[in-house]
Write a protein that binds this DNA or RNA. Structure first.
Length: 112
DNA sequence: CGATTGACGTACG
DNA sequence: TCGTACGCCAATC
């Protein structure tokens, strides 16, 4: 059986699991998949996410500091912030306010 | 086919 | 504590 794009697929899966009003990080996803240092691949996965049939809430994925690094990659950059604020997340200076409080850990999916 | 880049993160000085 | 270097792996030039 081929390897598929397991890594990418897993990334999309995890991102879709992020509940409304929560955000996660590339590193957390990468670590959850077993490649903590492959956070960049998670970012690439997001880039490819547009190629996916199902839409991926990439706006809920930020870097470890909580900065919306990928906002520029959206069709309309403001969309990312608008969506996040719509879900109750406060964005200040392209950064998530009280990020730690809104952080959603993929491991929570494991009912850990 | 080789070099560079990229939605990041950790390690080291 | 802050700044710099390196790793990760795929896609693009």
């Amino acid at each position: 059986m081929p390897k598929n794009n397991d890594f990418f697929k897993q990334v999309y899966q995890v991102v879709r699991l992020v509940p409304k009003g929560r955000v996660t990080t590339y590193g957390a996803i990468g670590k959850y998949l077993g490649s903590a240092k492959s956070a960049r691949m998670v970012g690439w996965a997001m880039n490819n996410a547009h190629s996916q049939a199902l839409k991926v809430p990439a706006h809920r994925v930020v870097n470890r500091i909580g900065i919306l690094t990928g906002k520029h990659h959206f069709s309309i950059q403001n969309t990312m912030i608008e969506l996040l604020e719509e879900e109750g997340i406060i964005i200040k200076n392209d950064q998530v306010v009280d990020f730690k409080n809104h952080f959603w850990d993929p491991y929570e999916h494991l009912n850990l």
